[in-house]
């Protein structure tokens, strides 16, 4: 467990967040501070709203019909639902990695170049290539795919695909990376690699990770929030949550009594 760095500023501040899918309410007035350059893990039983919470931060819920969000999500003090903040711009700053690896049916290189290209970040092909290579490198994938850059991304193994998706996300230079159970579709070895990667990435990015796996939360995160029935039951330093939770429900969940 890495020592907590209390000097970190708050990157994302969520206040009184409620989400409705049509008539059904999925989140009930959630408050959470996400500190910069740390890994914040969201845990809790399925259907407790942690993925919904995650998707609010970069407004991926916009694509769902009938979804309504109230409350505030401040990214560096600016509400992400503010009209002046553009959703495209927001998602460039807040990247996302999904549960199932979803590389585009293009080459490895094209996959990573996709984001910088649409955002017009690189001014030349050489610069784009530099971004692609360094992103792959940072995602720990470069050595494995160096000779296969122009083969389809879908030809990689599951773990490699997920790291490709991470490389794809960091190529855009986001400030925050949201990960929605990034290892749930992977085997233990691939999972270990990705966990190591997450720990390294924290140096440059703020990471929020949803996970089902409590060992994983304990291994990679500095802070943990426990979700239950659309509310945050308990939130704090990971070490404290796992060793000395204050709420009975948290206690029950992490000791495996339900979930």
């Amino acid at each position: 467990m890495t020592a907590v760095e209390p000097t970190n500023a708050t990157k994302v501040r969520v206040g009184d967040l409620s989400v409705f899918y049509g008539e059904k309410q999925a989140l009930f007035g959630v408050d959470l501070d996400v500190p910069a350059n740390q890994v914040t893990a969201l845990i809790g039983p399925s259907g407790c709203g942690k993925s919904t919470f995650l998707r609010c931060v970069n407004r991926m819920n916009d694509v769902i019909d009938g979804c309504r969000v109230t409350g505030s999500i401040l990214l560096d003090g600016v509400d992400v639902n503010d009209r002046t903040l553009d959703v495209v711009q927001l998602r460039a700053r807040v990247g996302m990695v999904f549960q199932k690896p979803n590389p585009f049916p293009k080459s490895v290189w094209e996959n990573v170049a996709y984001g910088p290209r649409i955002h017009g970040i690189a001014s030349s092909h050489a610069e784009l290539d530099r971004i692609v290579i360094s992103s792959l490198d940072r995602a720990g994938l470069l050595k494995e795919v160096q000779d296969r850059l122009h083969e389809p991304g879908t030809s990689l193994s599951g773990g490699q695909q997920q790291r490709l998706c991470i490389a794809r996300a960091i190529a855009v230079s986001p400030e925050v990376i949201l990960m929605d159970e990034p290892c749930s579709a992977l085997d233990p070895i691939a999972t270990a690699t990705i966990e190591g990667l997450i720990d390294e990435l924290r140096e440059k990015f703020t990471i929020v990770i949803v996970t089902h796996n409590m060992q994983q939360a304990a291994r990679v995160s500095q802070r943990t929030a426990f979700f239950h029935l659309g509310e945050i039951v308990e939130e704090g330093e990971t070490g404290k949550i796992f060793t000395n939770p204050t709420d009975q429900r948290t206690q029950d969940y992490i000791t495996g009594r339900f979930g």
Partner: peptide, 8 residues
């Protein structure tokens, strides 16, 4: 990171 905030 310093200029990364800027590029978007």
């Amino acid at each position: 990171r310093a200029d990364a905030v800027g590029i978007h």
